[in-house]
């Protein structure tokens, strides 16, 4: 299960979600601006507050790092 922690206007969050959509990868989006529980989860998982944070089955990626995302996804299959 892929989780993405984002804020409403964050361009890198949008780019990450667009990238998942384009590659037909399913994910659940948590808007930490509105969801304080999700924000607490995000901070706990990543040890920091910047968005986006992407959680791919427990592997945490901070920022829209396409190389890291591709790497984790290719090892997942």
């Amino acid at each position: 299960m892929i989780k993405i922690y984002s804020t409403t206007h964050c361009p890198y969050c949008k780019m990450a979600k667009d990238y998942f959509d384009k590659n037909k990868v399913e994910y659940k989006d948590y808007n930490v601006e509105a969801d304080e529980e999700a924000l607490a989860d995000m901070v706990k998982k990543s040890g920091q507050m910047g968005v986006p944070v992407i959680d791919i089955d427990g592997t945490i990626i901070v920022g829209f790092d396409r190389g890291a995302i591709d790497h984790v996804l290719s090892h997942k299959k």
Partner: peptide, 18 residues
Amino acid sequence: YEGKGVFYCSICDAPLMK
């Protein structure tokens, strides 16, 4: 403190300062 309160992308991270 990068990401731990030091930010460079305000449009991304301003909402965390609620």
